[in-house]
Design a protein around this nucleic acid. Structure first.
Lengths: 158, 158
DNA sequence: TAACATTGCATATCAAGCTATGCAAGTGGT
DNA sequence: ACCACTTGCATAGCTTGATATGCAATGTTA
């Protein structure tokens, strides 16, 4: 009974994510954007002036990963980092006008990727798929928390 | 009507894949393995002596990515690359005894990740989820082919 | 207030993915 | 045999993800 990658949820999720990323990259490269900055932009388009930590929490990305992404975004003229006057440690992230101007085209590109990927699926199948993804994400986040904070008394993991 | 990342299949797929990778990484690091080599090992455990190209086709990975992965695997004593006597271009990939010895523990770790992730889902929900992932993968692969081979006469893209 | 802990961010280093490019080894046509 | 094309792989250089570590600024506490 050999392990079959094509029936492994983890392998399929990895493959699926790579295909989504390839598609998105192809569509947003003409806008001068890349896949790694996209999630940060989605958050910032909704709410400017966040700290790095707030971005990290909203996106479930490790802090050094976000720091590097923000450095690239600053280099590419998408954001500016400004010191918080009240707390000398904090750098607040502000979008440039150029980044704000890209919101419409960029989100349209992302919606096109989703529409492309989900074409051929019924409404209920799409809804079920996304609901299941969210449930698994929640499960894996909880088990990651267990790894970080090992056993707070109840439900010892044998 | 702002784009909502938490309802975007692409964003969810990316997040899900990162969580799967974190979990797998935590479990196979003690074995001296990493997530990038894992898919290659799954294929090679089933069938040794493949060429790089054959691995690429089975895993849908770009060729230079696979070349780098194989270099790391060789460095870490998991594989050996041997010139094909019949074709001087080809390097056939052979597992070392060390790599073969890891199959049981490694696949058990991967199964544990999947079991962990899918805990709380019913059998039919798991089956539906994996079926949908496979359908979307197929859809995205087809549309990538369209990008590479643009319009062979029929079904021009607008 | 001095000592210690925490918080926010940066840097170094690596893995894992990608595109672009180069080159050697085969293949095919003339 | 020679030229052009194709195939298989490697290398260079980038992005995106991670861990480990350091450090300055802030909080806390004796």
């Amino acid at each position: 009974m050999t392990f079959n990658k094509d029936e492994s949820a983890g392998y399929l999720a990895n493959h699926l994510a790579r295909l989504f990323a390839r598609d998105l990259q192809a569509r947003i490269k003409p806008l001068g954007l890349s896949t790694g900055t996209f999630p940060a932009l989605l958050v910032l388009w909704e709410n400017d002036g966040l700290t790095q930590r707030e971005l990290i929490e909203r996106l479930d990305i490790e802090q050094p990963t976000m720091a590097n992404t923000l450095t690239r975004m600053e280099r590419d003229g998408l954001i500016r980092r400004c010191k918080d006057p009240a707390d000398g440690r904090v750098q607040r992230i502000w979008l440039t006008d150029e980044a704000r101007a890209l919101e419409g085209l960029a989100t349209a590109a992302a919606e096109a990727v989703n529409a492309d990927a989900l074409a051929g699926l019924g409404d209920e199948e799409r809804a079920a798929f996304q609901a299941t993804m969210r449930r698994i994400i929640a499960t894996l986040q909880a088990s990651a928390d267990d790894r970080d904070t090992p056993a707070r008394g109840r439900t010892e993991s044998l």
